[in-house]
């Protein structure tokens, strides 16, 4: 599909070599160097120390809390993201463009300000917050507030990775399915979902990575209580204060590795599956899902 690349390898001129070297040097200095420096600090005292830092009860609590928040945020924002994308692409209603614009807002809002927003609206001094708290459901400085913060900062990710796919495939196949008598759920999970699934997965992976690493909003919203509202990133922040910040380095490496593996792993799987699907579709004159429906 792609035009063959200009085979510059043999005929590479000096300016080109220089450009490559310059880019690699910049990359090394800015991205690779700091990552390696951090890893070196984390592993300098030996594997035993790393293990000890990881099994610190506070570290485990923090990781568990981060996992909880990430799971809830990912599930709810993925469901919302799919639904919102369908609504935005397939429906026309008053205010659609406003909603569309608002969705990008979390990209533009500083996480600290996101935290501030939640405190102002749901904080115990606000009308809503005090009402909810009197029902025994406090938000800010408790888990619900932290989940809300995570939802806020990751809100656009799934929508923005699903909507373009929906737009691109159009609604023809869905229409055919419903004329054939399929109800909306069958149409959704037999037609729509399979076509958008990689968009969903990519968006969800971004949500996971982003909520694992969220810091600014949580700092404002959580109260940072060790063993209760201290997430992994807040633990890092807290450990920097201690005289031996080794725990911070180790936790940082854990967080960075997990989210990086999720992103890279997803991209790899996605590429290989896409390649296979292209091959399959080419054999099948591009009507895959509809034919399956008829077979059924």
């Amino acid at each position: 599909m792609k035009p063959p690349k200009p085979q510059l390898q043999n005929t590479m001129t000096w300016p080109q070599r220089f450009l490559i070297i310059a880019v690699l040097a910049w990359f090394g200095l800015l991205i690779l160097g700091p990552a390696v420096a951090l890893a070196r600090r984390a592993f300098a005292p030996g594997v035993g120390a790393v293990f000890k830092a990881l099994t610190d009860p506070d570290a485990i609590e923090a990781l568990l809390l981060t996992a909880k928040i990430t799971v809830v945020v990912t599930i709810s924002n993925t469901i919302f993201g799919i639904a919102m994308a369908i609504v935005l692409v397939r429906q026309r209603f008053w205010g659609r463009r406003i909603v569309d614009g608002l969705l990008d807002l979390p990209f533009a809002v500083s996480p600290v300000i996101a935290g501030l927003m939640l405190i102002i609206l749901y904080g115990p001094k606000s009308t809503i917050g005090s009402r909810l708290e009197s029902f025994g459901f406090p938000i800010v400085y408790h888990l619900p507030g932290m989940i809300l913060a995570g939802m806020f900062v990751t809100l656009p990710l799934v929508v923005r990775s699903v909507a373009p796919i929906l737009e691109e495939i159009g609604s023809d196949q869905e229409d055919v399915a419903s004329t054939l008598g399929a109800d909306w759920w069958t149409t959704f999970h037999r037609i729509t979902l399979p076509t958008i699934r990689w968009g969903v997965a990519y968006g969800a992976a971004l949500v996971v990575a982003r909520s694992l690493g969220e810091f600014g909003a949580l700092l404002v919203v959580s109260g940072n209580i060790i063993g209760r509202t201290q997430t992994a990133t807040l633990y890092v922040h807290d450990q920097i204060e201690s005289f031996e910040p080794h725990g911070a380095y180790v936790m940082s490496i854990v967080l960075a590795t997990v989210s990086f593996c999720i992103l890279v792993g997803l991209e790899t799987i996605q590429n290989s599956v896409r390649r296979r699907e292209y091959a399959a579709e080419a054999k099948e004159d591009g009507q895959g899902p509809i034919r399956q429906m008829r077979r059924h």
């Binding site: 991205i31 700091p34 690493g213 922040h237 940082s252 960075a256 990086f260 999720i262 890279v264």
Partner: peptide
């Protein structure tokens, strides 16, 4: 690795740069 900055928590970025 180009995507690394998206994946790494920002506070970890800070730690890396200080390191």
């Amino acid at each position: 690795l180009v995507d690394l900055p998206f994946a790494v928590p920002t506070i970890v970025t800070g730690l890396m740069l200080v390191a």
